[in-house]
Structure formats: structure tokens, C-alpha cells
Design a protein around this nucleic acid. Structure first.
Lengths: 337, 337
DNA sequence: ACTCCTATCGCAATCGATTGCAATTGCAAG
DNA sequence: CTTGCAATTGCAATCGATTGCGATAGGAGT
């Protein structure tokens, strides 16, 4: 309607405005020494022509992509979807936190087949920094990459001597809280449902053990290595619960999703919750509000967790050196215990 | 260990190799006229020096970003998380399909405050194409954007006269299937749980109505506008079910998540499922396997859905013109009906 | 009116890879 | 040994925005 020649780049706009490309750049980027008048005039012109500076050119010149990679390693269970509601919750929170700080979130699922998937990704130059959700069984890989590639933070557990910067809740304390709660409720035969291959799960189990030891119930603990992924569990859990000699009166699930599977299995076996068996989950997902019965759980504050992840990452990108953050989990009592 | 001067760009490598930058480019990009010998020599050199061409420069020259934007508009329920397991399932499948085709997936949550969020995003130049998950109540916005911006596909319902290219299941047929199933099971007073503001939900309701009309039960349908988001429902659903005069004997839920809330509410009210009330969900998520009782549902094949989305989008990027795809949903009978 | 200073603006190099076109090399045929 | 042709390689422009440095214009001060 206005002009035929579409404005494709900053130079075109400069021509129309009768100034140099540099001036247009300064006018549009906000900062820079430039007079109020010309700035407003050029911005108005840009708006009128619906012109937006090319981001790729900007990225090249500025030497940053404006994107953060979020990686989800699926080390301990190949071939699975990200069916865990935990991920989406975290992902949504990260998306918010990153958008707020002006970054895009590029999502990549990774199935670690070799030992340098992380370093390859870091060197690919597609992102300015990396957030890894969950250590899975890749702690060594994470440590190696962190030694060389600075802008990297990880959601997960913290262990002594760990090189990479992590954010997560105190899994040992969390496991302790869960087990202690069941003990208070009178449980004597406690089972832990979860595969302790990933670091975090191992820590939760460790906390469990500690609580039981304090109560003199150390040898009453049984461990069933249920998978984290929804759906992979069910027949196994049912079979496990059917063995009368190991039938527990309290279950500490390594995640809310596992707890959910346990609840269903118990229901099908006709075992009352919390009457005969008490069940407590881990994570504090919204999901737990909808189970039958509502799920007691150990809640991690994922909102501040996501905020911490982004905060630490951006500080690392800025060159700062940051140390890991461990948050305290919190008991949420609902109706399953 | 080898050389001090780190190889930062293609020119450095060229110097070392004793060739021109152009030759290095050709050697590394795979294609291009170049002799076997030099290609292998240069590739070996690149590997040795751990050199990877700068992606941003490549993007600028090639005029493509190699990224696809996945947008999730949250039009009808502001301030919510993406707590819906449906999203994560779809997201995971999309991530796989896109990675397979060499694209990155950049995730953005959008809370539509104005009418041109989509066009702004499209013009931002950050991505080569856009996939929108769910029409929400933004059909008009989608249509307007689609008229101008080609590489755009949408997961959701299809309606006559729709401009944008969509992939989704036949929601009308799906609603029909759900209601018909309940009718076959002997239900007389059917309730639809779901807020029909989004197009897809409205279509499911329409299908429901059609099935009831055929059975002569047209005026027995009640609609409760439950929110899609988990957690927003519960008190409302319980209150609704407590009103004796409207107590249904069959519930068609607009999503599996809503169905899950319904199951829990029914359990708390002491109403047996499927004895007193039958419940059927919609989506076919893995989640449904873990509810008590296991959830009957109308399943959409999200795997081929995601594949279709990516396929159509890439063809649109290539300049082709594609029309919408409607897939047939499928009844999955479990134990809640 | 003249000098000086500074707030703005223009110029041109730069980021790093790609690619059309021209030049060179190699090889084989005559 | 020379010519011809084709396979490789080099050259240099290009993608579009940013920014340090130098130039200019405007105003202030005397």
C-alpha cells in the first residue's frame, strides 16, 4: 500500500530514512548514542514497514545464539518416551523462566549411545548454554563436559566431588522424610519402589535406609527396581506385590508416577490404601491430586528450582563461577498414608 | 598438543591445509565438486583439530535457521502451566520426528494477549517453520497468519472454510464413538465434562450430541465445562456430581486428564466405577493405564499425528501446498466403562 | 563573529561460511 | 610434444547487522 520496494534489511530502511545503516542499527537496538528525534523517526518507519532486523545476522555479529539447549538424557531406559509428567512440568517452568530473560528454549532428547554426546552438543554452537534435566547414569559424562564447557547446569542430585554445577533437592533428606513419615504412621515392612541406577534415586534410597536404621528397621527394607517411565512397571509391580512373604505395609516410591502405578496395582489386588498399605510418592506433581486416593508425597519446589537453573546458567554465561544449589524437599500429606 | 593456534574458522583450517576457504567448505559440507583425496584429507584435519564450522554464519548465508518453533497457545485458560500430559507426549514425539529430519525444536509457550502474537513470532525470523499445538480459541488468528505465512501447521480440529493447515483426529467422530459406547453399555443420563470453548472440544461435544440424538436421548445430555488443566477441576466436579437431580450414569470426558479428575471425585463420593457411573476419556495417553480403574478412552494416534505434522510442515517449507489431515480415532475399552 | 567542544552520525571493517564464476591443473588423445 | 577437455580449486562477492573510529554539525562561551 505504501511503497512497492519491501524493506528487507537495515540498509533499505536506511535509504528510505536518509541515514546510514549504522544509524538505523543504533536506533533499533535501543542503546547507543543517538538523538531522540532520529531514533523515534526511524522506529516509527520500521513499524510502518513491519521491518524486523534479521536475527541470524545479528547472532553472527554478536556471537551469541540467544538460545539455551535443554537436554533430557534417557540413559537408563532406552527407547522410552518422555512420558514422565515431571519433565513437562520442569520444561514449562524453564520455558517461562528463559523467555522472561530473553532466551529461546531448544529442546533435545538424547539417548546416550557414546560418551561424548554432551560435548558434541556443546561444540555444535547451536546454543549459548545447556541445561540438562536429570543425571540419569551419566554423571561421568557430565563431569567431563563441565570441566571444559562452562555454561552448563544440571537438574539433579549433588554428590561430593562433583564437578558439574547442579540444582536439585536434597534427595537423601527427601528419602529420609518419606520413610520417617511411614514409620510414624506405624509401617514395619517398607518397600522402596525405584531403580537406583540414576544418582538421584540412589540417594533417595540411601535416605530411606538411614531413617529405617534409626528406627531399628534396617533389615526390613526391600527394594523393587521399578522403572521411572510410566507403563513399564505395571505387570512387575503387581507380580511383586502378589508374593505374600514380601508383602509390605508401606511403600516409598521413587517418583509420583511410580507411586501411581503402585496405587493402581494395589487397587486391583484389593489391598486398601492407606488401610493395609500406605504409599508415599516423590516430586509433588499436580498429578498426585488426582489419584485415588490422593497421593502423599515429598515435594520438590520445581518453580524455584527452574528459576535457580536459569539464574545460575546465565551467570555462568556471563563468566561467573557458580556452585551447586541443594534445596530442601517438603512433606505433603494427603490421603494415601 | 598439536598446534598452538586454535582453529576458529574455516579460513584457519584452509591455511593449515594449504587450500582456499572455499575448498574447505566444499570438503566439509559433503556435497560439491571436489576430489576424494582433498576431501578426506581436510575432513581428517578438521577432526584432528576438533573444528566445527560456525552454524550462525552458515545460517546467515544459507538463509535458514534449522529450527522449528513449537507453540502452545494457552488462550482459554490464562496463567496455567502446560500441566497436561498430552502436551509432553506430543512434544516428545515431535522432538523425535524433527530431530530425525535434522531440525531443532524451539519451544515457546504463548499466552495470547493480543491478536498478532503468531505473526510477530513468524516474522521474528528465529525459525523456519511453526507448529502450533491446539487451536485453543485462536482459530481466527491462525487463519490470518496462515494466509500470509506459509510454513505453518496446526494440531487440532478441522472445520469447513478453515484456512490453516491442520492435523488432528476427527473430533466429531470421536465424540460420537465415546457416547455411542456409553449408550451401548446402557447409560441413559450422560454428562459431557469439558469446556467447549476450544474448537476441538466443541466438536467432540457435537459428536456426542449426534450419537445421543440417534439413540433418542438428545435431551438427557448435560454439559459441565471442566477445565482442561489438571487441578483446576476438582472442587467443581465434586460439587457438580453431588447435585442429585443431575447425577449422570455415564460421563464423556473431553480429555483423559479430565476423566482422571472425574474418577477421583467419584471415588471420594463413594460412587462405583463402572458400576454406578461409567467414564470414558479422550486422547489415549499412557496415563490412562494407571488410573483406578483403568480408563476406557478414545485414542488418537499421536505418533502418526506428530509424523504428519512434521511431514506437512517440511513440505510447506519446500514450497508445496498441503491440505489438512484428519485421522480416525479409535475406541479403547478398559475397565471404566 | 570566532573558537572550542561534544553530541550525532557516517564509514568501513567485521562476524564466518557459502557459491557462482573464472582459472588452473591434470590427463588423455592426436 | 601439443592441444583439448574436464575435473578441481581459487577468488571474491554475499548474507545482514554491529561497532570503533573518525568526521561533521550544532550549540555554547567569550
Amino acid at each position: 500500500m505504501t511503497e512497492r520496494p519491501r524493506i528487507r534489511n537495515i540498509a533499505d530502511l536506511a535509504k528510505i530514512a536518509g541515514v546510514s545503516p549504522g544509524t538505523v542499527s543504533r536506533a533499533l537496538s535501543g542503546a547507543g548514542l543517538i538523538s531522540q528525534k532520529t531514533r523515534e523517526r526511524i522506529q516509527a518507519l520500521a513499524r510502518e514497514h513491519e521491518f524486523r532486523p534479521n536475527i541470524m545476522a545479528r547472532n553472527l555479529r554478536i556471537q551469541r545464539t540467544g538460545a539455551i539447549g535443554v537436554l533430557i538424557p534417557l540413559g537408563h531406559e532406552t527407547g522410552q518416551h518422555i512420558s514422565d509428567p515431571f519433565f513437562i512440568t520442569m520444561l514449562g517452568l524453564l520455558a517461562d523462566a528463559l523467555t522472561e530473560r530473553g532466551y529461546d528454549l531448544v529442546l533435545s532428547r538424547v539417548i546416550p549411545t557414546d560418551d561424548d554426546w554432551l560435548e558434541r552438543y556443546a561444540d555444535s554452537g547451536r546454543v549459548d548454554g545447556i541445561i540438562v534435566i536429570g543425571q540419569s547414569d551419566q554423571s561421568a559424562v557430565l563431569d567431563r563436559a563441565a570441566a571444559r564447557y562452562r555454561p552448563l547446569v544440571v537438574w539433579g542430585g549433588h554428590s561430593r566431588g562433583q564437578v558439574h554445577c547442579s540444582v536439585g533437592s536434597d534427595n537423601i533428606a527427601g528419602g529420609d522424610i518419606a520413610a520417617s513419615h511411614l514409620i510414624e504412621r506405624g509401617c514395619k515392612r517398607i518397600a522402596f519402589f525405584g531403580d537406583p541406577t540414576p544418582l538421584e534415586i540412589a540417594q533417595r534410597l540411601e535416605g530411606c535406609r538411614a531413617a529405617l536404621a534409626r528406627a531399628g528397621l534396617a533389615d526390613s527394607l526391600t527394594v523393587f527396581p521399578a522403572h521411572l517411565a510410566a507403563g513399564a512397571n505395571d505387570s512387575g509391580i503387581t507380580a511383586y506385590l502378589e508374593q505374600a512373604e514380601t508383602r509390605p505395609d508401606g511403600i516409598v516410591a521413587a517418583s509420583d508416577v511410580i507411586a501411581m502405578s503402585a496405587l493402581r496395582a494395589l487397587s486391583e489386588l484389593g489391598m486398601a490404601v492407606p488401610g493395609e498399605v500406605k504409599v508415599i510418592g516423590y516430586d509433588g506433581l499436580a498429578l498426585g491430586e488426582h489419584t485415588v486416593p490422593r497421593l502423599s508425597t515429598v515435594k520438590q519446589d520445581l518453580t524455584t528450582g527452574a528459576r535457580n537453573l536459569v539464574d545460575l546458567l546465565l551467570r555462568r554465561i556471563a563468566g561467573e563461577d557458580t556452585s551447586s544449589v541443594v534445596m530442601m524437599p517438603e512433606l505433603v500429606v494427603r490421603l494415601s498414608t
